[in-house]
């Protein structure tokens, strides 16, 4: 493969990986926007989503789309429960206390899951068969097409919810100023629950898609992508939905290019280097200006 071909192929791989990051990053950014918490457990929510999808396909014999929806619903409920149980009692506690709780929650989900399903990786069933398309010398395989399609649909759906619906407007209000929003009669607890549900459902979708893409899931699969997605959210400007989407895609592409042209072992280092550079030189990220709509 010549340079240009490799470059474009890595670009395609990067965008599909980046779509996954973007889906997880959306949840991070929404939750951070609304309760100023780096939800360390968010990556593990994504892992739970993958397992729910896995069991739906293997045990309930569903096809991919019902599995995706089941996983999003169940994981969305899990997100609400996590918030109710672990974060809500600490609504007025110092932020670091909540951060430590989130780390604890992350461990709880990881090792709780490990306890039930054993640490061995599971092979995700090849539930989605498609030959994909080849464009000249590049290949976009079926799983990648599926990822693109689902990501675009979900992002469009989320944008619609946040922009047009009543609950979306309430989310933006709470994110902008929780106290004032409450004075205006908005039930902040309900809005926070909805935010966790939406964020978790998106992460669950990402989990199922990753299962289909890489064919393998394990209880600790959420650790790295969770942190990477946070990097994506920071890169895009934390609190900004378009930021999370763009940040995710950019991060995925950079990682794919680093893997393709330097070494895959430096993939993670590249992501962290981006994080630190952004935090030091442009902490508001790409889209995180004051005029940026926040959720």
């Amino acid at each position: 493969m010549d340079f240009a071909t490799l470059f474009v192929q890595q670009l395609i791989n990067g965008v599909s990986l980046g779509s996954i990051y973007a889906l997880i990053a959306l949840g991070y950014t929404m939750i951070y926007g609304i309760i100023k918490l780096i939800n360390f457990a968010h990556g593990d929510i994504y892992m739970v989503g993958a397992y729910v999808g896995f069991f739906a396909i293997t045990m309930m014999r569903t096809s991919v789309f019902p599995a995706l929806i089941i996983s999003m619903i169940i994981t969305g409920i899990l997100g609400i429960l996590v918030e109710r149980f672990a974060y809500k009692p600490l609504r007025h506690a110092p932020r670091l206390s909540v951060l430590i709780t989130a780390i604890g929650m992350s461990f709880f989900l990881e090792y709780g899951m490990m306890y039930f399903v054993s640490p061995t990786p599971r092979t995700f069933p090849a539930a989605f068969e498609s030959s994909g398309i080849s464009l000249g010398s590049f290949v976009v395989n079926g799983q990648q097409l599926l990822i693109f399609a689902i990501t675009i649909i979900l992002m469009a759906l989320l944008t619609y919810i946040v922009q047009k619906t009543k609950i979306g407007k309430a989310m933006r209000a709470v994110s902008f100023d929780t106290e004032t929003a409450q004075l205006m009669g908005i039930d902040a607890n309900r809005v926070i629950s909805v935010t966790f549900a939406l964020g978790s459902a998106l992460a669950a979708a990402a989990g199922v898609l990753v299962g289909i893409y890489y064919n393998s899931i394990d209880p600790l699969m959420g650790m790295m992508p969770g942190i990477k997605a946070f990097v994506a959210a920071v890169l895009g400007g934390i609190g900004s939905l378009p930021g999370a989407m763009t940040g995710g895609i950019i991060l995925g592409v950079i990682e794919a290019l680093v893997s393709g042209f330097i070494s895959s072992t430096f993939r993670d280092a590249a992501a962290f280097a981006i994080l630190i550079l952004v935090l030091l030189f442009k902490p508001s990220g790409l889209f995180g200006t004051d005029t940026q709509e926040k959720v």
Binding site: A86, P89, L90, A93, P94, S97, V98, I100, T101, I103, G104, M105, S106, F107, F108, E110, Y111, G112, M114, Y115, P119
Partner: peptide, 20 residues
């Protein structure tokens, strides 16, 4: 090992609730 980590996890969470 899973059990150990679950204990840590719950300890961290409840510590933050009752004795941060």
């Amino acid at each position: 090992p899973e059990f150990r980590m679950i204990i840590y996890a719950l300890a961290l969470i409840f510590l933050m609730f009752y004795r941060p």
